[in-house]
Simulated scan of single mutants.
Amino acid sequence: MRLIGLKTCDTCRKALKELRAAGLDPEVIDVRADGVTDADLDAIVANFPLKAVNKSSTTWRGLSDAEKDSDPKALLQAHPTLLKRPVIIADDMTIGWDKATRARWLGDAAMGA
């Protein structure tokens, strides 16, 4: 299991803490420090074409209209922190840390929290 995120992201830290509490030990890939491979970016954009880019971020608001209209993969390569986080990859892939995603990875443990 791999968690692609940002070490300073509260949502990523929460997801990592809950995953570890459930006995999982994901490899953490920090988008800023480690980067994201082309293969992972391709898979993320293919699986989540409308959700891969976090359009509520400060970085997004600072982009020009031309940049906002560019290819999502190119945008994420230029600005890795724009990636919607966390992306969790194991036997499948999820993005974000909502109730359904928590249930997917934590099972019944997510329902009590």
Rank of each mutant, 00 (worst) to 15 (best):
Asp40Trp: 01
Met93Thr: 07
Gln77Asp: 06
Asp34Glu: 13
Gly35Ile: 00
Ala46Ser: 14
Ala33Lys: 15
Glu27Met: 08
Val45Cys: 08
Ser57Met: 11
Thr81Lys: 14
Lys99Ser: 10
Asp91Lys: 07
Lys84Asn: 12
Glu27Pro: 02
Lys55Gln: 11
Pro72Glu: 10
Ala46His: 08
Ala22Cys: 12
Asp69Asn: 14
Glu18Val: 08
Thr59Ile: 07
Arg61Met: 10
Lys14Pro: 10
Glu67Ile: 13
Ala39Lys: 03
Asp92Glu: 09
Pro49Arg: 10
Ile88Pro: 00
Cys9Asn: 01
Asp98Thr: 14
Lys73His: 02
Leu76Met: 13
Val28Asp: 03
Val36Cys: 00
Ala33Asn: 10
Trp97Lys: 04
Ala78Cys: 15
Asp108Phe: 11
Arg20Tyr: 12
Lys17Gly: 08
Ile95Gln: 02
Asp92Ile: 00
Asp38Met: 02
Pro49Cys: 14
Trp105Ser: 04
Leu3Ile: 13
Ala74Gln: 13
Met1Gly: 07
Thr81His: 11
Met111Thr: 15
His79Glu: 15
Ile4Tyr: 01
Leu50Pro: 05
Gly23Ala: 07
Gly112Lys: 09
Cys12Tyr: 09
Leu19Gly: 02
Leu6Gln: 14
Val36Ser: 01
Arg2Met: 10
Gly5Ile: 06
Ile95Gly: 00
Thr8Gln: 08
Asp71Ala: 09
Ala21Glu: 11
Lys7Asn: 08
Arg32Leu: 15
Arg20Cys: 13
Met93Ala: 05
Thr37Gln: 01
Thr37Ala: 02
Lys17Gln: 15
Gly112Thr: 14
Asp98Arg: 12
Val87Met: 02
Ala109Ser: 09
Leu6Arg: 12
Pro49Ile: 13
Gln77Trp: 04
Leu76Ser: 07
Arg61Cys: 08
Asp40Val: 02
Arg13Met: 09
Asn47Thr: 09
Ser70Asn: 07
Thr37Trp: 00
Ala109His: 11
Gly96Lys: 04
Asp30Gln: 12
Val36Tyr: 00
Pro86Tyr: 05
Pro49Ala: 14
Leu50Gln: 13
Asp38Pro: 02
Gly112Asp: 13
Thr37Gly: 03
Met111Gly: 12
Ser56Lys: 06
Ala52Thr: 06
Thr59Pro: 03
Trp105His: 09
